[in-house]
Design a protein around this nucleic acid. Structure first.
Lengths: 209, 209
DNA sequence: TCCGACATCCCTCTTTGGAGGGGGGGATTC
DNA sequence: GAATCCCCCCCTCCAAAGAGGGATGTCGGA
């Protein structure tokens, strides 16, 4: 890495300040260079195609397309693509979704440069990179239970303030069934009622408000 | 500003990357320098005391103490302190609270350097700085109704999944009263039920989940 | 001083939520 | 082919939520 070609990275983050920060941080490293900057998920996909970088530094919560969606699409078209997620959020669902989408690493925005640069080098070299605090989020929640797609649909409608009856007619199913899904949502998230279900799942990154 | 003393600023943000970004952005300006960096609200207060900068660039959502709390405390001790809030969130409540806390400006993290540098110069010079998109958040929600402190207490407990009865005993009031507060919360936020109240108020920055 | 906002308490009534049961059918996996 | 998971439907029952009234006291501003 020291000599010869630099690691070419694409930075995707909707915050201008963050992109500047990454560029200047990476410049101090010497063996890494930012070849393109994307301000949302769609741009990230576009610019990946164009520049074929060695690695994408990907934020998760972006407009137009999320980092998860962008990661999935990039990885689908380019199975060798390397994605290092750089997120402000440490919800277990966010982390899990990132790896499921095909990311090889997950770093928190609060982490310092001494932690970020090695992560970039490692993931660019094909390794996985999961810092202790990130791994902890996953393991501590060992009894984590995944919501089914139907349960997620119901949960999202609940977050909008819809009543079971309304959800039922929206989904074209019986109110009994909505209640059944809700029951299992409450059980899986281990919460008391629909309201706590919404706040807990928002905290953990299961739903976006 | 061009000649002589530089504008001395304190940067407060819990994301290392953002702090780097701000430092390097500001360096390109020439007439501004970062004299200290804080990673949370308490540090911001501490470092303000120590360096007495011309301006604080303050993030809102930080650990230990929020940017709002830090701003209030700094302004209380130093009424001449100038604070420019730099936030990722554009919820009307966040914006409102920032100005109530004594900030003179509010810039979004997605805004580019050409917008941020003038904001820093303006606020440091004693002017107010409210970009169009920020002002719009406030005015579009013209029929915005403020929740009272009691209503906020109730709302926060609702977000935890507590039932009216439990909230009543926690606050030492009657369940009837809790229901009354809830009624006015629902009316003010114009939502259908407690669950939507939680998601809407979280979106708008009225409560933190 | 009167008014309005806030906080408190009270009552009734209807709807909704959620717990706790009972099923059935389809798909996948072992 | 048994087991498991998902999705779906149904029923009862009680507690909780929320709408719609009425009422009291305080406090600060017009």
């Amino acid at each position: 890495m020291r000599l010869g070609k630099k690691i070419r990275i694409l930075v995707a983050d909707d915050h201008y300040i963050v992109r500047i920060g990454l560029v200047s941080l990476v410049n101090t490293a010497g063996d890494i260079e930012v070849v393109a900057e994307a301000a949302d998920g769609s741009q990230a996909i576009e610019l990946y195609e164009k520049h074929q970088p060695d690695l994408v530094l990907m934020d998760l919560r972006m407009t137009v397309k999320t980092g998860i969606e962008a990661t999935i699409e990039i990885r689908r078209k380019h199975p060798k693509a390397r994605v290092l997620v750089l997120s402000a959020f440490d919800g277990d669902a966010d982390i899990r979704k990132a790896f499921e989408a095909g990311a090889q690493g997950y770093v928190l925005k609060s982490s310092t440069g001494e932690k970020l640069i090695p992560a970039i080098r490692a993931v660019a070299a094909g390794e996985r990179w999961i810092p202790r605090e990130v791994a902890h989020r996953l393991s501590s929640r060992n009894s984590y239970e995944t919501l089914t797609t139907r349960e997620l649909e119901v949960l999202n409608q609940i977050a909008k303030g819809l009543a079971n009856k309304q959800i039922a007619s929206h989904l074209g199913i019986s109110e009994y069934t909505v209640k059944d899904h809700l029951k299992s949502i409450l059980a899986k998230l281990r919460v008391a009622d629909r309201t706590e279900a919404v706040s807990v799942s928002a905290q953990r990154g299961i739903i976006q408000l």
